[in-house]
Amino acid sequence: MSGSILVFIEQASGEPQKSGLVALEAARQIQAKWGNGSISTLCLGAGAKGAAEAMLQYGVAKALYSEEASFSQYRAIAYEAAFLKGMESVGATVGIAAATTTGKDFLPRCGVQLDAGQASDIIAVNDDGSLRRPMYAGDVLADVEITSEKKLVTVRTSAFAAAEPTATSGTSEELNGVAVGENAGEITSFEASGGDRPELTEADIVVSGGRALQSEENFEKYIFPLADALGAAVGASRAAVDSGYAPNDWQVGQTGKIVAPNLYVAVGISGAIQHLAGMKDSKTIVAINKDPEAPIYEVADFGLVADLYEAVPELTEKVKAAKAG
């Protein structure tokens, strides 16, 4: 029988984040195929104890946590050390994290110490136990097998549902004795790009703007009101980010965020391959673009060929009226 699975759960103020529950769902599917003994979780940073206790309702064997100061801010070397210690303490042979900028950053490092291969950004667990992951901006879906004894996996957060609570059975346990190397570095500042809108990868509706918006001011004037009327997160194409109209962490695409909301509204976005890679699994796609030949229409359920500067304010008003009525 294979060893157990350790899942890294990101938490904020004692709340497990959705990305972690998605990773847990993937872990359950992997356990069913690979026959791993049990699933445990690890939460780090201030509030980790509360988050670990919250994880117990998901039927995990051990909910590990550490609130030590070295984990109060994310640093790859510190989180790597904690995850390796956690895997050792629960006898894990499989380590799983969501493919967020945190999971992507620290998990590969663990592979060197564990002599483990890693499947990145998986979107499915196949019947034969192989893992499906996109390559070439999603033009290829590869079924891969990790051939090393120990295995690491990062999970695309838009590809699995969040795990549902099950029976409470395990225990929470503080993770002690993690030695963090002196070269872990120091976080000197953090500039949040957020605001009050939903998180892009967790939002039910996303409104994205492209190069046709022409300026940061137009993002504020046209995209924000529509997003707020819909209760949506705001995204952007790479072209819009490159042109400085929107911050990078709004970027939807192969090299940015991968989203699959119920409704994706692409405004002034032509639909380059790398953008489609980030949103084509959305349930319903709307495109508003004045070029009737734009490739975005090849994936859009509903296309409106129109000048965005007229159509978007009109849509915003109509959505508001519909919601009010």
């Binding site: 900028t101 945190t102 070269n183 570095g185 120091e186 976080i187 000197t188 500042s189 949040a192």
Partner: peptide
């Protein structure tokens, strides 16, 4: 660094 939720600055040796 371009991370989820914003920009983080780290000093490493």
């Amino acid at each position: 660094r371009e991370v989820d939720g914003g920009l983080e600055t780290i000093a490493v040796s």
